[in-house]
């Protein structure tokens, strides 16, 4: 199978869905001739023109709100918010309009929009360009939240998100765009709410998502040398959340750690831990451990940035603790 970059996988998904359905269009900052801040919309402006690949002003509230309004009236917008950090400006429209209109209007409307954005650390761009804010969106009834870790998942899940009739927050990771992975030539989609076992193992379940999956796999490779076998589960869609797969794995391993790049307090890792405790307490032979970011704004200095978030070493340390 051919290998393509994560950004290319996303680009293919957008191109294919725009070809398939004329109602799909892209709007956002620098998505046009520039091709997107991380290159995801490269070539699409040339192929589809300025009507369907719309550069906007720096107006996140209007981008998100206009996407909701267009979605309610027959279009299927894919709005790009350049960094999840900027979603603060768009929050009212996402949380109060896009997420709630269907329910509040008695189930008589749909808001089929995707908000693509990216987050995470790794480029030394500090506290306004490096956050992991997924918990905010997961907390809101009416929004789906997707965070793919591989090229394959990125393409299949973005296609599903665009076809879904609900508002979807699609969060990419800035350090994954240049990672490569297998993606088939032929068309495929991935259903929402299905986690994926990225590595099978028996001793400890490691639940992770987005770039943390790569760190977990690296840790698994290291620990294999010491005879410790990790099962790495990639959550992929934080909402809907595939607790069945997680619980099945914990039933087998009896030990679980959860890795998230977001601040530890009030995060998705805590939600997953709570659900394991509620539904799988009897499977556990050791306390659940969360490996998450420190509760600090992400600092710029590489030394501090690295210290703020999980690392392979921190995951290994947590695994050793959970099996001790």
């Amino acid at each position: 199978m051919r290998e393509i970059f994560y950004w290319q996988a996303l680009n293919e998904a957008l191109r294919e869905e725009m070809k398939r359905d004329e109602h799909v269009f892209i709007m956002g900052e620098d998505v046009g001739p520039y091709g997107g801040a991380y290159g995801v919309t490269r070539g699409l402006y040339k192929e589809f023109g300025d009507e369907r690949v719309r550069d906007t002003a720096i107006s996140e509230a209007a981008i998100a709100g206009a996407a909701a309004g267009a979605a309610m009236t027959g279009m299927r917008p894919v709005a790009e918010i350049m960094s999840i950090d900027f979603s603060t400006i768009a929050m009212d429209q996402l949380v109060n309009i896009a997420a709630k209109n269907r329910y509040m209007f008695g189930g008589k409307t749909t808001v089929p929009m995707v908000m693509r954005t990216q987050g995470g650390t790794g480029r030394g761009v500090a506290g306004h360009h490096s956050q992991s804010l997924e918990a905010w969106f997961v907390h809101v009834p009416g929004l789906y939240v997707i965070m793919p870790s591989t090229s394959y998942d990125a393409k299949g899940l973005l296609k599903t998100a665009i076809r879904d009739d609900n508002p979807v927050i699609f969060i990419e990771h800035k350090m994954l765009y240049m990672t490569k992975g297998n993606v088939p030539e032929e068309e495929y989609t991935i259903p929402l709410g299905r986690a994926d076992i990225k590595r099978k193992g028996n001793d400890v379940t490691v639940v992770a998502y987005s770039r943390m999956v790569l760190l977990a796999l690296e840790a698994a490779g290291e620990l294999e040398k010491e005879g410790i076998s990790l099962e790495v589960i990639d959550v992929r869609t934080l909402k809907p959340l595939d607790m069945d797969m997680i619980l099945d794995s914990v039933r087998k391993t009896n030990r679980v750690i959860i890795v998230s790049e977001a601040c530890k307090t009030g995060g998705v890792a805590g939600e997953i831990a709570a659900q394991i405790a509620e539904k799988g307490f009897d499977y556990l032979d050791a306390p659940i451990i969360r490996v998450a970011a420190a509760d600090v704004p992400i600092p710029m200095s590489p030394v501090l940035e690295k210290a703020a978030v999980p690392s392979v070493e921190k995951i290994i340390e947590a695994v050793k603790k959970v099996i001790s």
């Binding site: 509230a61 209007a62 998100a64 709100g65 206009a66 996407a67 309004g69 309610m72 309009i97």
Partner: peptide
């Protein structure tokens, strides 16, 4: 106001 704007775009 943004929603109406989006409907007009649509």
């Amino acid at each position: 106001i943004p929603v109406a704007t989006g409907a007009a775009l649509s």
